[in-house]
Computed example of a mutant assay.
Amino acid sequence: MGVSGGMDRHERLLEIVNLVYEIEDRHQMLVALFDELRRVFAFSSGVLLPIDPACFELQEAACFDCPAENSSPYLEHYAALDPYVLRGPASFHLNRTVRLSDLAGARELARSEFADFMAMVPYRHALAAVCGFNGQPLAAFSVHRSGQRADFTADELAAVDSIAPHLGRALGIRRLLADPAQTEAVGLLAFDDRGQVLFMNAAARRVAVDGTASLIFAALPPTGPGTVCLGLRRYRVGRFPWRAASLLTSIEHDASESGFMHTASIRSGATMVRSWRDAQRLGTKLLIVGVVPFQRRVDVLSRLEKYGLSRRESTITVHGVLSGLANAEVARALCISEETVKSHLREAYRKIGVGNRQELVVRVLGLEGELLPGRGEPRCDQPAGSPPGRS
Score class of each variant (00 low, 15 high):
Val228Lys: 10
Ile173Asn: 08
Ala90Gln: 14
Thr317Tyr: 04
Leu325Glu: 06
Met118Lys: 07
Phe260His: 11
Arg363Ala: 07
Ala181Arg: 12
Thr227Phe: 00
Ala185Leu: 04
Asp210Phe: 06
Pro378Met: 01
Tyr74Gly: 08
Ala164Gly: 04
Arg390Ala: 04
Leu49Ile: 14
Val291Phe: 04
Phe141Val: 15
Gly308Trp: 01
Glu252Asp: 09
Ala279Thr: 02
Val330Lys: 06
Gly46Cys: 05
Ser314Gly: 15
Arg363Cys: 07
Met29Tyr: 09
Ala204Gln: 03
Ala80Arg: 11
Gly5Ser: 12
Asn134Asp: 14
Ala328Met: 04
Gly353Met: 03
Arg234Met: 01
Glu359Gln: 10
Cys63Val: 15
Ser391Thr: 12
Arg311Tyr: 07
Met120Glu: 15
Leu103Val: 13
Leu304Arg: 08
Ser337Ile: 06
Gly5His: 06
Leu48Lys: 02
Glu368Cys: 00
His144Cys: 00
Gly132Cys: 06
Cys131Val: 15
Tyr84Val: 14
Ser310Met: 13
Ala333Leu: 13
Ala348Pro: 08
Ala328Val: 13
Cys335Ile: 12
Arg311Ala: 12
Leu198Glu: 00
Gln382Lys: 00
Thr212Asn: 01
Val98Phe: 08
His10Val: 04
Glu113Val: 10
Gly172Cys: 01
Gln382Pro: 06
Gly168Phe: 01
Gly385Leu: 01
Arg205Thr: 10
Cys63Pro: 15
Pro388Val: 05
Ile336Val: 13
Arg303Glu: 10
Ala42His: 15
Ser275Trp: 14
Ala79Arg: 08
Val291Leu: 13
Asp8Glu: 09
Asn18His: 12
Glu252Trp: 00
Gln196Thr: 08
Cys380Ala: 02
Arg357Met: 11
Gly168Glu: 05
Ser275Arg: 15
Val273Met: 07
Ile163Glu: 02
Val186Lys: 05
Arg311Cys: 03
Ser268Val: 02
Gly226Asn: 02
Phe43Ala: 02
Asp151Gln: 13
Val20His: 02
Ala119Tyr: 08
Val292Cys: 10
Thr317Trp: 01
Val298Cys: 11
Gly283His: 04
Arg12Lys: 09
Arg379Cys: 11
Arg267Lys: 13
Ile23Asn: 09
Arg332Ile: 05
Arg274Leu: 03
Val209Ser: 12
Leu304Glu: 07
Ser275Ile: 06
Arg346Gln: 13
Ser112His: 08
Ser323Met: 04
Leu177Trp: 05
Gln148Arg: 15
Leu75Asp: 00
Asp161Thr: 09
Thr97Gly: 05
Pro137Met: 02
Arg390Asp: 03
Ala54Asp: 13
Val273Cys: 10
Pro378Gln: 10
Asp65Ser: 07
Ala218His: 11
Leu37Phe: 07
Thr317Val: 11
Asp35Phe: 02
Gly168Ile: 03
Phe34Arg: 04
Arg233Phe: 06
Ser91His: 06
Ala62Lys: 12
Leu37Trp: 10
Gly355Glu: 14
Arg297His: 07
Pro221Arg: 04
Ser4Arg: 13
